[in-house]
Simulated assay, not measured.
Amino acid sequence: MKTNITASQAMKIAKDYKEKYNLSGIIHDDIERSVKFYSSFYRIKGYAWLVVADIAPKIYEGDDEITYVISDEEAVVDHILDHNGIPLYIHLEESNRMTEEEFDAIWNDDSNEED
């Protein structure tokens, strides 16, 4: 089986994503501990790499880890699984956020003017 990326590349992709979006947790440098390969994974075309970040000690219920789901085909984080196993698409949510200027332009209080 030929993959497009290696376990260490998957780990770097996850660490870069974590840093870019300022996400919590620790991705340990031990590849055996932190990275798992799957020949198929829900919603991923082709192979997938899962990289685990520890979030212990946790302050809420759920697992003590966050999982980065990386597409081997695209070599990017497709989504993360939060401590409850809920998929999050941080990169997509980020692109859908308004800037402060856009928010102010839409919600400017001019609509209260009387004619």
Score class of each variant (00 low, 15 high):
M1D: 08
K2S: 12
N4Q: 14
N4I: 02
N4P: 01
N4S: 14
A7F: 10
A7Y: 09
S8G: 00
Q9Y: 02
M11V: 00
M11S: 13
K12P: 00
K12G: 00
A14F: 04
K15P: 02
K15R: 13
D16Y: 00
D16V: 04
D16C: 03
K18M: 11
K18Q: 15
E19V: 03
E19I: 07
K20M: 06
K20H: 06
Y21V: 07
Y21E: 02
N22D: 14
N22F: 06
N22G: 06
L23N: 03
L23P: 01
L23H: 06
S24M: 11
S24P: 10
G25I: 05
G25E: 04
G25R: 04
I27D: 02
H28K: 09
D29I: 03
I31K: 03
E32S: 11
V35Q: 02
V35N: 00
V35I: 06
F37K: 07
S40N: 15
S40P: 01
S40Q: 15
R43F: 11
I44T: 07
K45S: 11
G46W: 04
W49K: 02
L50A: 11
L50R: 14
L50M: 13
L50Q: 10
V51K: 03
V51T: 03
V51S: 00
A53G: 05
I55S: 08
A56D: 12
P57S: 07
P57L: 08
K58Q: 11
I59D: 13
I59G: 14
Y60P: 00
Y60G: 08
E61V: 13
G62S: 09
G62T: 08
G62L: 08
G62M: 08
D63H: 10
D63P: 01
D63M: 10
D64C: 08
D64Q: 12
D64W: 11
E65F: 14
E65Y: 15
E65L: 11
E65C: 13
I66A: 02
T67D: 02
T67F: 01
Y68Q: 02
Y68W: 08
Y68I: 06
I70H: 09
I70K: 05
S71F: 08
V76P: 03
V77R: 01
V77C: 04
D78L: 12
D78I: 05
H79T: 09
I80Y: 06
I80R: 05
I80T: 15
I80S: 05
L81C: 11
L81M: 13
D82I: 09
H83R: 12
H83K: 13
H83S: 10
N84P: 01
G85Q: 09
G85Y: 04
P87D: 06
P87N: 04
P87M: 04
L88M: 12
L88F: 07
Y89L: 07
I90A: 09
H91K: 13
E94L: 00
S95Y: 05
S95H: 06
N96K: 13
N96C: 10
N96D: 15
N96E: 15
R97E: 13
R97H: 07
M98E: 07
E101N: 07
E101I: 10
E102A: 15
F103D: 08
D104L: 13
D104I: 05
I106S: 05
I106E: 12
W107C: 05
W107S: 01
N108M: 02
D109K: 15
S111A: 08
N112V: 06
N112L: 15
E113G: 07
D115V: 11
D115S: 10
D115F: 06
D115Y: 11
D115L: 09
D115T: 04
